[in-house]
């Protein structure tokens, strides 16, 4: 493959992951953490980043071992790899990034029950060389982060009137400036932070993405068909 083709392929992977084929808004995968962890923008962002790390690492590993894994046992092996990566991230953060772990620790084991990493392993990493697989895992993960932060931001603003509350706990004190109060404290619509809000906001944001895609002259995807 020539260099030009390579960089072309890479930019497609990046664009697919971040927007065109976004894991949440287009493929409707990884719904469980999407709903459960988006009560605030900060939580969504943290969960997204941890997922991106696990996705990049497991995509890379699956691509490296793709010729050794037979079709019959591939699902257990993929799950094993994702679960191992999650355990490693969990242990390492607990030991060496303890402050961050205290904020994110709650979310990390939940990455195992996310079907997005598994879907990308099956659809992409299993058939591709290791570098594109790494890139796909990373950017699918970052696209996931964008989606979760967006859903979290909408739910947080409407639900509790703040935006990025407690971001300094996650990112360090220099990020104190992005903590905002958008609406007065008693104006929040609590329903948005409760479970029903998760469904409704996700549904509406899928519509927003369709509108933006239409404006840009793209076909809109009518279904996220291949949900497991």
């Amino acid at each position: 493959m020539s260099n030009a083709e390579n960089s072309n392929q890479y930019s497609t992977i990046v664009k697919d992951g971040l927007w065109d084929n976004n894991g949440v808004f287009s493929m409707l995968l990884g719904m469980c953490p999407t709903m459960a962890m988006t009560t605030s923008a900060t939580n969504g962002f943290g969960m997204g980043l941890a997922t991106a790390v696990v996705m990049a690492a497991s995509s890379y590993l699956v691509a490296v071992f793709r010729n050794q894994i037979t079709t019959e046992v591939r699902i257990p092996v993929y799950i094993l790899i994702v679960a191992s990566m999650v355990t490693l991230v969990d242990l390492a953060m607990n030991a060496w990034m303890h402050e961050l772990y205290k904020v994110l620790g709650l979310f990390i084991p939940l990455i195992v029950s996310n079907c997005l990493p598994l879907a990308r392993l099956e659809a992409f990493a299993a058939k591709q060389p290791s570098f594109p697989a790494l890139l796909d895992g990373l950017f699918m993960g970052l696209g996931f982060t964008i989606a979760l932060t967006a859903i979290g931001a909408v739910r947080e603003i409407v639900g509790s009137g703040t935006l990025f509350a407690d971001a300094s706990l996650l990112l360090g004190n220099s990020f104190k400036v992005i903590e905002m109060r958008v609406l007065p404290a008693d104006m929040g619509v609590l329903m948005m932070i409760l479970p029903p809000g998760g469904f409704i906001v996700t549904g509406l944001l899928v519509v927003v993405k369709r509108v933006l895609d239409l404006r840009a002259g793209k076909e809109i995807q009518m279904a996220g068909a291949h949900a497991v």
Partner: peptide, 8 residues
């Protein structure tokens, strides 16, 4: 929020 993939 568990089992949402099959739910959808």
């Amino acid at each position: 929020f568990l089992g949402l993939c099959s739910f959808m």
